[in-house]
Design a protein around this nucleic acid. Structure first.
Ligand SMILES: [Zn+2]
Length: 255
DNA sequence: ACTGCCGGGGA
DNA sequence: TCCCCGGCAGT
């Protein structure tokens, strides 16, 4: 009589050589580099951080536009370009307070950014990005929106939701739907899940870094079972299970 | 220092 | 696909 399913206990039932094939677990849906790159790029250029108007479009024509000073520590928001420029010039670049148009005309451009009222759609798009990234502009576009602060961390959660399956012997994705098996626990990289306001002024980690650590999906918690390496020793490597030999999750001594 | 293993890369 | 390994996290 044939037993057709060889799912979890590989060696007992499946008759093929132990080390024939293992397939690397696909753990999460890929967080694309695009996202990361976007984050990196954006973070490296504060002046355009929150510019919500497409570049081709002239900033003046948005009636609800506001302009925020990007000078470190300054939160000044003004409703006109002239105003914000003057602010930057006089408050921060006060080298030549007297003459307006002529001197260092472009310099103050680096120290303000346009902020318009953000549509919910755009807002949600922004929320996919690192939380800390749009933080500065989210703050002042809708300072009192309660849904913002609460939804920021969790909304991304559903995107990066992991499929909790890790065995090398895992059946194809069609078989496992999405029931997270109780047997497997992952450590979420950030268990306190940043409900805290996260003051952007005090931030000392780079945004890219931050984003990475918040989206570091999960890491299998280290089981206490001895694995092949420990059991057989380095010098008997050939007795290890394939996964261990390949420095993958051991498939012989499961946790 | 050692262990387990993810992610990535070479053939 | 098979195999190896850098590097990281946890012990
Ligand atoms: Zn093993």
């Amino acid at each position: 009589m044939q037993v057709s399913q060889c799912g979890e206990s590989e060696m007992s039932i499946c008759s093929r050589p132990v080390s024939s094939s293992i397939d690397v677990p696909k753990r999460r849906q890929e967080v694309d580099m695009d996202e990361l790159m976007a984050a990196m790029v954006l973070s490296s250029c504060p002046a355009v951080l929150c510019s919500t108007a497409p570049p081709s479009q002239s900033p003046q024509n948005s009636e609800h536009a506001a302009f925020r000073c990007l000078w470190p520590g300054c939160e000044k928001v003004l409703t006109s370009i002239v105003g914000i420029k003057r602010h930057v010039r006089t408050m921060h670049l006060n080298s030549c307070a007297g003459e307006y148009e002529r001197c260092s005309r472009s310099e103050e451009d680096f120290y303000y950014t346009e902020v318009t009222s953000v549509s919910p759609r755009l807002l949600s798009a922004l929320l996919i990005l690192p939380q800390s990234l749009p933080l500065t502009c989210l703050q002042l576009t809708s300072p009192s929106s309660p849904s913002l602060s609460s939804s920021a961390p969790s909304s991304s959660d559903c995107f990066w939701q992991v499929q909790a399956e890790h065995s090398y012997q895992a059946p194809p994705p069609g078989l496992i739907v999405s029931a997270p098996s109780p047997a497997c626990h992952w450590t979420t990289a950030n268990s306190t899940h940043s409900k805290q306001p996260l003051h952007h002024r005090v931030r000392s980690v780079s945004v890219g870094e931050q984003w990475l650590q918040q989206n570091t999906p999960c890491r299998r918690v280290r089981g206490e079972a001895k694995k092949c390496r420990k059991v057989y020793g380095i010098e008997h490597r050939e007795q290890w299970c394939t996964a261990c030999r390949w420095k993958k999750a051991c498939q012989r001594f499961l946790d």
